[in-house]
Design a protein around this nucleic acid. Structure first.
Lengths: 140, 140
DNA sequence: TTATTTGTTATAGTAAGTGTAACAATTAAA
DNA sequence: TTTAATTGTTACACTTACTATAACAAATAA
């Protein structure tokens, strides 16, 4: 799954959980969101580890939100599901002479991309799950 | 090539051209940057179409910068090499009941990602090729 | 004990990225 | 006019990543 698909799938599942007053299992969420149950469990287990949802095994188990939707921010969802690997720039390591130049350009772009990443996360930090739920409610 | 690799490769080639006072062919640039000559020609032909570099075929041909390095911005390099396709969010189209909800969440994220894209391009618009060249010169 | 559910691993199929080669079209120079 | 060089584009084999789903052990409530 690409980063953006993972994020929107996570939000779809979380929206469904926010609307439910009982634990929901992966099949139930799958039927209501169209996302494959196995994929859902993978995503939700990551959200569990980051204390955004709670999971319980067994007969009456399933998933529930661990916080209210106005206390869940898009940035923490993103961080939970995405291992923010540093950008790698395919340094062309065969050419000895240009390695110093190569490294300098790469370090410039690593820095730039990291700053962009920080900007994106700051933007996401200001968006609550409840904001998205409201957007969906009000959009005709 | 990923977007970031394409961008850094382009900048490496452009830095080399900025430093040269004569047309350079793709083999020459390849030897000095470690980037495959065929790949370079692909990138540089895109930069040609966007009037950032000039190309000439034939015996004494090669590539030259069409503008000075302080008139070339990172954003125009990025736009030249990247066809900014809209994000697609793998809408799960099999489930009829959830399609309305699905579309709303997707439209929310399309909007968000487009805004992020605009922010990134605005950031790149403020960076000149000459800035990167200076960074490389001064970095120890 | 049994049925159910999560969490994780495996797998098969598809798509995308990578590196390189090949060659037609073009063009300056001999 | 001929020749050699160069770009621009297409092709191709190879690898890597992505996608969707299945399978099953571990856990757990009934």
């Amino acid at each position: 799954m690409s980063a953006s698909t993972k994020l929107s799938n996570s939000v779809k599942a979380l929206c469904f959980l926010a609307n439910s007053n009982k634990p929901c299992n992966s099949n139930e969420i799958s039927e209501n969101t169209g996302i494959n149950a196995s994929k859902l469990r993978k995503l939700l287990s990551l959200l569990c580890k980051n204390l955004i949802v709670e999971s319980n095994k067994g007969a009456t188990g399933g998933f529930t939100l661990k916080k209210s939707s106005d206390q869940i921010h898009l940035q923490e969802i993103y961080c939970a599901i995405e291992d923010r690997k540093a950008f790698d720039l395919h340094s062309s390591s065969d050419n000895n002479l240009s390695n110093i130049f190569d490294n300098k350009v790469n370090s410039y772009f690593l820095d730039l991309f990291n700053n962009i990443q920080i900007d994106i996360e700051n933007k996401m930090r200001e968006i609550k799950l409840s904001d998205i739920i409201n957007f969906i409610k009000n959009k005709k």
